[in-house]
Write a protein that binds this DNA or RNA. Structure first.
Lengths: 137, 137
DNA sequence: TCCTACGGTGGACTCAATCCAAGTCAAGAA
DNA sequence: TTCTTGACTTGGATTGAGTCCACCGTAGGA
């Protein structure tokens, strides 16, 4: 993640303290925070940071391809910093917990030409759903 | 769809004019309307129908398994009456158009046990993305 | 036809996200 | 080092989607 800041700087990003804390908060595996959660965590380190800045920064990270947006329910979007390793998501239908998962094969290969309706298909997102161990218990 | 109303009645549904027009509006293939679009179309036939009733009715149809909720972007949920034939969705990244598609195989089979983390996995939704012919042109 | 519990209404409210005008500051220039 | 400037941040207002609620209306059984 320390590289992230350098990479962004290389792309002409102005490196502000706000952007730094947002990037730091998103560091790690299996991180799927909402914008609001990012704001709370960022504000612990930089109390004056505004929600608008968090939204702006998240949006820029998404545009730059460093973070992916995940919306597994109809509620707030979540932000996944694990953008450079392709993966899918497994979501608990009880508590909403999210895990990154790596299914076999390529979902794109399962969509035959006659099911593409002339679209130039470029990607597929898979959301697996089920009960997690603690919700099932 | 005419059966739908009978089926619902059989389950103790009180058959009101509001519920009837919502069900009628949702009739058809490749229908993926937002709640607001349903409200507009329903109001053409029954001008006094309220948004709250449309939301209530859509929610009941979802609970009864007659309609599935689809949220392909972070915006408004869409309602798909094609609930009895399992299928996935192909979404245009340009205009947002949605097609029902039927991929080969079963996505659940692609998630090996060691990627299930103890979850009782019960389903998988796949969203294919790409440019539709008119957006690509 | 009457009753009444279920369903409908609309207006207020919540939650997520975006917009905007004014103020601030990172980083290149001198 | 200081200056300058345009990119960035702020917080409050605004939008959009959806939910809630107290009161009213009516479908359908008796």
């Amino acid at each position: 993640m320390s590289d992230l800041l350098e990479r962004l700087r290389g792309r002409g990003w102005r490196l502000t303290s706000q952007r730094r804390v947002v990037a730091e908060v998103l560091d790690g595996d299996h991180v799927h925070l909402t914008a609001d959660e990012v704001h709370v965590l960022a504000a612990e380190r930089l109390p004056e940071i505004s929600r608008a800045t968090v939204y702006n920064t998240l949006g820029e990270l998404v545009t730059l391809g460093e973070v992916v947006e995940v919306s597994t329910d109809g509620r707030a979007k979540r932000y996944d910093p694990n953008a450079h390793r392709p993966h899918q998501h497994l979501v608990c239908t009880g508590c909403g917990a999210i895990r990154d998962v790596h299914p076999l094969g390529n979902p794109l290969a399962d969509l035959p030409a006659d099911q593409r309706f002339g679209f130039a298909v470029s990607g597929a997102e898979v959301t697996y759903r089920g009960l997690c161990p603690s919700c099932a218990g």
